[in-house]
Computed example of a mutant assay.
Amino acid sequence: MSSSRLTPKAFFVAYGVVLLVMAALDAVWLGWLGLDMYKQEIGPLLLDTPKWLPAALFYLCYPLGLVFLALHIRPSTLGEAVLRSAVVGLVAYGVYDLSNLATLRDWSVKVCIVDMVYGTCASGFAGFLAMKAANKFS
């Protein structure tokens, strides 16, 4: 790997991988594994049905930010790709969760911590898979 930028094709591939990985991980996490914790900790704040337009906008925008900020200037190793992607996840999820903790009456410290760890790990994993895929198109 070199310190060059991703080609447009590799960028698009990385974007698609991050979008699919984050959507799949969130489907499992939010729809099954973490659902009970969210209901227990912040249940009154949850909608019965998600608002799909803001969710779709997140899934279109977040992969773009992760690929642009963490991977577009090609990491020298896959480990660096994971680290950069994880930092993007920590910052993005941290801004959301810490802002909620600072401003919402019933936001849970447990949700804040768990969600930040989840976002960091999910983003690092997505960045790893995206870089592996992007390398095939360089």
Results as ranks from 00 to 15, higher is better:
residue 53 L to N: 01
residue 55 A to K: 00
residue 28 V to C: 04
residue 58 F to M: 02
residue 36 D to E: 15
residue 67 V to M: 06
residue 12 F to E: 09
residue 129 L to R: 03
residue 122 A to V: 11
residue 136 K to A: 15
residue 36 D to N: 14
residue 19 L to N: 00
residue 63 P to A: 07
residue 90 L to Y: 01
residue 110 K to M: 07
residue 123 S to Q: 07
residue 57 L to M: 14
residue 41 E to R: 07
residue 99 S to D: 12
residue 89 G to L: 03
residue 93 Y to R: 03
residue 51 K to M: 14
residue 107 W to K: 05
residue 113 I to K: 07
residue 43 G to Q: 02
residue 67 V to T: 09
residue 98 L to A: 12
residue 137 F to D: 13
residue 38 Y to F: 08
residue 102 A to E: 15
residue 80 E to Y: 05
residue 114 V to H: 09
residue 103 T to C: 03
residue 11 F to Y: 14
residue 82 V to T: 08
residue 134 A to L: 10
residue 25 L to G: 00
residue 105 R to V: 09
residue 116 M to H: 02
residue 123 S to R: 05
residue 102 A to T: 13
residue 3 S to R: 13
residue 126 A to I: 01
residue 84 R to H: 10
residue 34 G to V: 11
residue 85 S to P: 00
residue 31 G to N: 04
residue 132 K to C: 09
residue 56 A to F: 11
residue 20 L to N: 00
residue 115 D to C: 09
residue 91 V to I: 15
residue 95 V to C: 03
residue 25 L to S: 02
residue 82 V to D: 06
residue 65 G to P: 00
residue 65 G to V: 05
residue 77 T to K: 04
residue 99 S to V: 13
residue 28 V to M: 09
residue 9 K to L: 14
residue 30 L to D: 01
residue 102 A to F: 15
residue 79 G to W: 12
residue 16 G to F: 02
residue 85 S to G: 09
residue 14 A to Q: 02
residue 90 L to G: 07
residue 77 T to F: 04
residue 35 L to P: 02
residue 93 Y to M: 10
residue 31 G to F: 05
residue 61 C to Q: 07
residue 36 D to A: 15
residue 4 S to T: 15
residue 104 L to T: 08
residue 84 R to D: 06
residue 87 V to M: 13
residue 77 T to P: 03
residue 8 P to S: 10
residue 18 V to Y: 00
residue 75 P to N: 05
residue 64 L to W: 05
residue 48 D to A: 10
residue 81 A to G: 04
residue 37 M to R: 06
residue 131 M to Q: 11
residue 75 P to W: 04
residue 45 L to G: 03
residue 62 Y to M: 03
residue 121 C to N: 04
residue 12 F to A: 15
residue 86 A to Y: 01
residue 38 Y to D: 01
residue 113 I to P: 03
residue 55 A to W: 00
